[in-house]
Design a binder for these strands. Sequence first.
RNA 1: GCUCAGAUGGUGGAACUGGUAGACACGCAGGACUUAAAAUCCUGUUCCCGUAAACGGAGUGCGGGUUCGAUUCCCGCUCUGAGUACCA
Length: 1130
Amino acid sequence: MDYQFAAIEKKWQQFWADHQTFKALDETTKPKYYVLDMFPYPSGAGLHVGHPLGYIASDIFARYKRLKGFNVLHPMGYDSFGLPAEQYAIQTGQHPAITTEENIATYRRQLDQIGFSFDWSREVRTSAPDYYKWTQWIFMQLFNSWYNKAADKAEPISKLVEHFEKNGSSGVDSVCDDEVLSFTAEEWKAMGYESKQTELLKYRLTYLRESTVNWCPALGTVLANDEVKDGFSERGGYPVEQKKMMQWSMRITAYADRLLTGLDTIDWPEPLKEMQRNWIGKSVGALVKFRISSPTQPSPVGRALEMGEGEVKVSPTGGDLVGAIEVFTTRADTIFGTSFLVIAPEHDLVKPLTTPAQKAEIEAYITQTKKKSELERMADAKTVSGAFTGSYAINPVNGEKVQVWIADYVLAGYGTGAVMAVPSGDQRDYLFAKQYNLPIVPIIDIQNIETEADPTKEGRYINSGFINGLTYKEATATVIAKLEELGVGKAKINYRMRDAIFGRQRYWGEPVPVYFKDGLPHLIEEKDLPLILPEVDKYLPTESGEPPLGRAEGWSYKPSGPAPSKSPPVGETLKPNPNAHLTGNYRETADPAYYEQLKDYSIANRQNPTEAENVLWQLLRNDQTGYKVRRQHAIDQFIADFVFLQKGLIIELDGHHHKLNKEADDARTEVLNYFGFTVMRFTNGEVLKNSTRVVEQIKETLNSLNDRDITKFSGTAITSEAKVSPTGGDLEGAGEGFQYELSTMPGWAGSSWYWYRYMDANNDSEFASKQAVEYWKDVDLYIGGSEHATGHLLYSRFWNKFMKDVNLVIEEEPFKKLINQGHIQGRSNFVYRLIDDLGKGTNTFVSHGLVKQYQTSPIHVNVNIVENDILDTAKFKAWRPEFENAEFILENGKYICGVEVEKMSKRYYNVVNPDDIVKRYGADTLRMYEMFLGPLEQSKPWNTNGIEGVFKFLRKFWKLFHDDAWNFSVSADEPTKAELKSLHKIIRKVEEDIDRFSFNTSVSSFMIAVNELTEVKCNKKSILQDLVVVLSPYAPHICEELWVLLGNAAGTLSYAPYPKFNAAYLVEDEFAYPISINGKTKMNLNISLSLEPKDIEAFVLASADVQKYLDHKVPKKVIVVKGRIVNIVL
RNA sequence: GCUCAGAUGGUGGAACUGGUAGACACGCAGGACUUAAAAUCCUGUUCCCGUAAACGGAGUGCGGGUUCGAUUCCCGCUCUGAGUACCA
């Protein structure tokens, strides 16, 4: 029978599915091989021909490895949480789970018909509760861990607590951006529960913190840095703005160095490694403190000092040196060339540094920069602008007084947000100095700074004090040593990478397994996993701006098991949920029992004061302010740290976690204000560093306040008059459970560990069994797109390293070998509509070759009605009603379409669906053609134009096994030498090509082999059977069919041994040596390969043809490379 | 701007360590079969000169270099694609 691909393919796909042919073994003596594809997001559009490219390559590889005797794990699944399904849900009200389910069904159908050898018994879906249970579980492990810099690995947080209890904070190397507290073991033990937890949150690998985030108002969510491109969201292209929000973050920066060095151990494409290196952005340099010299403005600077803001440090001596600006530089050697300092407009010190004279100018500049969009800022990159603060700073190495400016070319988010400007060496500083007439001092003898900065590191230093005459290397070391000696600087490694924001204010994602109690995040119990995504009425934020999960009714955490102990944890105070956001929704407490409980808490608090509380208590007690003060006093539903009841003044000591709970604190202040209280807040640091000033401020405030009018707020009147809505709150014992975290996890959460789930996909007691992890270890070959370089691939490496640290997995790197398949671009076709005299489009279309003779406008035409760029005019007329009566101006009787390479997209009518290709040519042709298109890693436009060649090849291959009447017919005769040679050439070629992932050249070689065998009319079973095995990874269906026709058992081909290459069949006794004269090939001569170079030379020179060229001249030189070439130099 | 990748016929591409440039395929042209078309098969197909053909010259983005010999190695430049961008 002729090659009936449709029937053959259907039959074998069914067979493989029924027999689970590709199920990976869990127990075997075979070596393992793990071939993985990046799993797809199941979008509504289904697959186009570009998607399977990588899957086909990996499938060929997986099938090849099976033939080579490996136990191959080749799984597939779906990254099924994500924005598009949710956007669709918002528009249609359709639950994302339903659309996701439908899309997955489409994907599965499309994948199945291409004949992949996936082990579907291990399928994963990130949106399935039995999967995201483990995503949540890993989140919990991260929460329960911290990064021990000394050991350079993550450890359980309990070990940190142990350390604190024994040694206090000394000896702990922090990896936190925030300032951590210093304390002794005793002080730690004396800390309240809340303070302890707040402090620990600064160490946990996933943590809650107020951070500047990329907020996308259109999507209603925050985005990670890698999801933002040029100030717009990667998905949808909506504008993104910076905003401060309380957010979950992942402390990926703790792993910055390991992520960087690990790159050297893995076989990945160099560009991709480079992208990760840039993203991590390690720069080695120094921190330098420039003391501020400004007698004109002591008070604002002084205030900033006490607030512990920025980098201002208290000057022990006082005087006019009231603080310092800390800068980061990679060129400490150029410090003598510093002619001014520049700080970012958003820098904390801008306000205190601005003198009254400069105030207007600075404010105007800040307003101007704020108005500039991200794009405008980038467009302005070549110009510089700024404003002088009026303050000066002192260069620590030479005591020189330099101006402090603000400018938007200095970024608040990088380094310290401040730079020392060295115009002679830095082009931006140079431009700035020129523009504002600031000094430019050359500091290296060979420097040429006539027209631009010269960042040279060659030459010797001049104008540079104690480093004059030194080289770059010497100077850098000397300067840093000197700075350290002076206590004003130190060597510092800076990373560009920031911690990854982990929360999304969206519905369709993994719920974070956290609830809030007393304003602090707590993990739910492990036995309560998975925390199921609740149902909501709408997939939109709530009216009060909370994420969609805020709509879930009755969704709160009620710890099961034994009720929590009645006596509250020591030192615990009640604080609002930080997630309650600004509005301050506090329930009125009419419950006397609850008030009693509060009083118990108060007593406990009083017995366990913090150090700062104690200090302040000593200063305020016994009416030292003239008013009676109470501490840890229950007011309504709060416990105030200190309260002057008569004046209605509440003093709150917040420690450094103040920032953490800022929104909640603000909310509480609002409510207390409503009840007639004034609230003052101080940090523990302020009290400890300058208690006198704190007390003075309290006294001032007390004196400025009238007595509190308690009659206005008494009894039930409070409750009934309360304007605040009783929605939020997290009050213990309220009987409603605790508020869950309302954000969900970002898209990359589920994909950061999925390759481990495939190892043991159906395990419901572990993410994967230890046994499975130890057997499969890591991914041997990973194929996917380079667009995941700084997202998925970085986060996965991070989670993997963490999981290794806590002994969940055994490999440091998850993906040993990675290949980026190129993108398949669209190839658009155009027709050219004639434009009439009035400039209007007519119904006449001009063939591409003739467009220059007419006035036309191009129109995209559906590529599926075009073949080899020739338009099917009948189909064109039927394509759209408006073209029904179209007329054509043809060339050579054909309408030729124009061509352009664009993104494959519906709107360009250039989408080619693999279904259509499979229907017309079959899966085997599609598979081979996609490989034949070119090197896997190269991006290329899809062009169906050459697919006939591959189809013809498969028919020709099929024909080898059949006689002219299409009857199956092979002979048992001994193969000839030529046949064996053809076979063994392809056996070796496929092995070599697959080792370097050169699939396209293998397809060519198959064609050569089949052409050669057809030429000699080979139908020898021994040859053809081996050929079937070698071709089977590429064209599995046709090969399975022929394998069985050859008399083998069905289903055994996938595990048949790969034919053994025998070099003996390729040995030649003669070689047609190319003979070149002066490097130009003139002829070929057949010479025995047994001849040695000397004899070859004699033979060649004696040849009559060669003599003709020599023309009686004596060659200057004859080069003979055995088996390669002969070159005669005249 | 910086970093990386790349540039070979009409098209996709091959040439793996410096050794016959253009494999394999598409397209195109001519031919066979056929009443005809489709399908199939055969021949030719880098360019230029010339032409039945032999033969000659040029040729892997451009300009140099190293070498007996360079698509391959080195230097400079142009262009294309990707990433990144006031990163101090």
